Simulated assay, not measured.
Amino acid sequence: MVSQRILSFALVLSLAGSLFGLTHTAMAAEAPECAPSATLDTRIEAVLAKADRPAKQRANDANRLSETRFVLDHVKPGDHVLDLGAGGGYASYLLSAAVCSGSVDSQNPQKWDVDFKALPAREEMAAARPNIHLVQSDFDKVPMPATPYDVIFIGTIYHDTYNEAGHDAVTMDKTLLATLKPGGLVILTDHRTADGVGAAATDTLHRIDKATVLADFKAAGFELVEDNDSLANPADDHTKNVFDSSIRGHTDRMALVFRRPLH
Rank of each mutant, 00 (worst) to 15 (best):
S103Q: 14
S103H: 08
V104Q: 07
D105T: 06
Q107M: 07
W112F: 15
W112Q: 15
V114H: 12
D115F: 10
D115E: 15
D115I: 07
D115H: 11
F116G: 01
P120D: 10
P120G: 07
A121K: 08
A121R: 04
R122A: 11
R122H: 08
E123N: 12
E123Q: 15
E123K: 15
E124N: 14
M125T: 09
A126W: 10
P130A: 12
P130S: 13
H133W: 01
V135N: 08
V135A: 07
Q136V: 14
S137E: 07
D140A: 11
K141Y: 01
V142Y: 14
V142L: 06
P143G: 05
M144S: 15
P145V: 02
A146P: 10
T147M: 05
T147R: 11
P148C: 01
P148D: 02
Y149H: 08
D150M: 03
V151I: 12
V151Y: 06
F153I: 09
G155D: 11
I157Y: 01
H159V: 01
D160E: 12
T161A: 14
N163H: 07
N163W: 04
N163F: 07
N163P: 09
D168N: 15
A169K: 05
T171P: 01
T171W: 04
M172D: 14
T175D: 13
T175P: 00
L176Y: 08
L177R: 13
A178G: 09
A178S: 13
T179L: 00
T179C: 11
L180T: 01
G183M: 06
G183Y: 09
I187G: 12
I187A: 12
I187E: 10
L188V: 04
T189N: 09
T189Y: 00
D190R: 02
H191Y: 11
G196Y: 08
A199W: 03
A201C: 07
A201W: 00
A201F: 05
A201M: 09
A201Q: 13
D203I: 00
T204A: 14
L205K: 13
L205I: 00
H206Q: 12
I208M: 03
I208T: 03
K210R: 13
T212F: 01
V213K: 02
L214M: 10
A215Y: 00
D216Y: 05
F217H: 10
K218V: 06
A219N: 09
A219S: 13
G221I: 04
G221P: 09
F222R: 00
F222E: 03
E223W: 04
L224E: 14
L224T: 11
L224Q: 13
V225D: 06
E226C: 05
E226K: 13
D227P: 00
N228V: 01
N228P: 04
D229G: 04
S230E: 10
S230I: 09
S230L: 07
S230H: 04
N233V: 06
A235F: 06
H238P: 00
H238N: 10
H238G: 10
T239K: 13
